[in-house]
């Protein structure tokens, strides 16, 4: 990967940020919809950090999304803490869960890793189903948005929009930074040839665990902001189908690309929004898109474009 590649992905992030900055003023799209999509885009990018760049395909990222959401919602609502504290605690809780589950999951590779993360996530799902603070099937409702840092009133939809946009850009830059750091280079080396990386003196397990925790923390960030934006936290975000959906987002957009998961997330959220009246047909459509992507379109949309342009996006 060359310096030129690095800057083209960077320019891509800047373009996306600019488009999203003016999007609400065009009146074409509903700002709430874009905020939701940005949350899922962070989620998909966090998944991609682990799966696309780390080479470990997790099937349980919903546990971190849900943990970030539940902790943030609980702290904001029951403890009455300001949103920045609620979000940070949500991220910290997801990172802690990431450290615990990652230490177990990275002991296995390939499909065993995927199955282990799926099983761990299901365990977490049952925990949230039974824990009293999540209110089971009802979820935590009417989460207050509050004042960010005592300055920005998030009850204003415009302010909230730009705060979410700023966090979204921050998250993408963080992923970009991690991937293009020396740590990211070692991670790629481990993905390509683990014994070789080990013989060079790197500890694969340490690197895998760190990237697992980073991904978990970013998933938690997505969940925490999602709880503030939608003002609730429910079991949907912890369910295994959410873990599957995020795979589809990254796969459709392009795994291992910087912008692919963002595009995939926007497409899937749009699909849910506009096809909501078709009910279960959306699930069927998801399944079919999944199969088409895996069979004939493994690079994904952005990956395909990047491959044609011979650039990393």
């Amino acid at each position: 990967m060359t310096a030129g590649d690095r800057s083209s992905a960077f320019a891509g992030i800047a373009c996306v940020a600019m488009v999203l900055a003016v999007a609400p003023w065009t009146g074409l799209v509903y700002p709430f919809f874009i905020m939701q999509a940005m949350c899922f885009a962070i989620f998909a990018s966090a998944f991609n950090l682990l799966a696309g760049f780390g080479g470990l395909l997790p099937f349980g990222q919903a546990m971190f999304l849900g943990t970030g959401g539940y902790v943030c919602a609980h702290v904001a609502k029951m403890w009455g803490l300001p949103p920045e504290a609620a979000i940070l605690l949500g991220v910290a809780a997801a990172a802690a869960l990431g450290a615990a589950s990652g230490a177990i999951a990275i002991r296995r590779q390939g499909i065993y890793f995927s199955m282990t993360t799926l099983a761990l996530a299901q365990m977490v799902y049952f925990f949230y189903l039974q824990a009293p603070f999540t209110r089971g099937e009802d979820g935590i409702q009417s989460v207050p948005r509050g004042m960010l840092l005592g300055l920005l009133d998030l009850r204003s939809d415009t302010t909230l929009y730009y705060v979410v946009l700023a966090i979204f850009v921050f998250a993408l830059l963080a992923v970009h930074r991690i991937v293009h750091s020396p740590f990211g280079a070692v991670l790629r080396a481990i993905r390509e040839n683990e014994p070789r990386a080990m013989s060079l003196g790197y500890r694969p397990d340490d690197h895998k665990l760190i990237v697992f925790i980073l991904s978990a923390a970013l998933c938690g960030l997505a969940g925490a902001i999602k709880a503030i934006v939608s003002q609730n936290a429910t079991l949907t975000d912890v369910h295994w189908s959410m873990s599957g959906e995020v795979i589809l987002m990254a796969l459709l957009g392009g795994m291992g690309t910087m912008l692919g998961p963002v595009l995939g997330a926007f497409m899937l959220v749009a699909m849910q929004q506009y096809l909501a009246q078709f009910g279960q047909w959306v699930t069927v459509l998801h399944g079919i898109i999944f199969m088409i992507c895996v069979l004939v379109f493994r690079r994904g949309i952005v990956g395909e474009i990047a491959w044609r342009l011979k650039r990393a996006l």
């Binding site: 395909l57 499909i111 995927s114 009910g279 047909w281 699930t283 898109i289 999944f290």
Partner: peptide, 28 residues
């Protein structure tokens, strides 16, 4: 069969998509 020789994860994802579509159809 089309996925033979590729990373085994693709086979898992294909069967996952297949299961989603089937379960959706039965729910409908």
């Amino acid at each position: 069969r089309l996925l033979a020789g590729l990373d085994h994860l693709y086979g898992m994802l294909l069967t996952f998509g297949f299961a989603l579509a089937l379960q959706g159809l039965f729910q409908i």
